[in-house]
Amino acid sequence: MTTTAGGAVHAEGGSRRDFLYVATGVAGAIGTALAVWPLIDQMNPAQDVLALASTEVDLSPIVEGQSITVVWRGKPVFIRHRTADEIATAQGDKVEELRDPQSDAERAPRAEWLVLVGVCTHLGCIPLGQKSTDPRGDWGGWFCPCHGSHYDVSGRIRKGPAPRNLEVPPYEYLDDTRIKIG
């Protein structure tokens, strides 16, 4: 390191001017990053959007075999009151043979109620199967019309391009007939 107009050369080999350059650059970079952060953060969900992040559902009007769709965070949530046959089928499946292995007990803590985020894990379409007249795929659960993914009565992927099972949202039972999603 040669002596610059800025001043003396120090033992380590840097001049005072080098130090000032680096210090100025670092301060400028940190300042710019701090100034840019609000410009990025403003696109994150706003406080009023976050305030709508939980949904309560009354399960009592849903008869056995019926499905309903509720909205949570703007997404459809499927709630199916499963029949005894469906529960037996779902619980009888060999978990290790599945693409995304998960037992029915993990997905439905109370076996007659299945709660799923109704968004296909392939590219985000909404699978058919909520109405009794809908195509429900080869496993009697849901069928995604966009690219042909088949889900079983536990919402697990069985056939088609989707990589994962339909997501189970976080939810809890407030009492025997009411749940809170989110």
Binding site: W37, P38, L39, D41, Q42, N44, A46, Q47, D48, V49
Partner: peptide
């Protein structure tokens, strides 16, 4: 975040001030 409509403009500005992240600063 702003909504250019006579019925919604004022409220959208208040939303920027209260709800949008860093909206007050911007």
């Amino acid at each position: 975040h702003y909504v250019p409509h006579g019925d919604m403009a004022f409220d959208s500005v208040e939303r920027i001030m209260r709800d949008v992240n860093q909206g007050w600063l911007l």
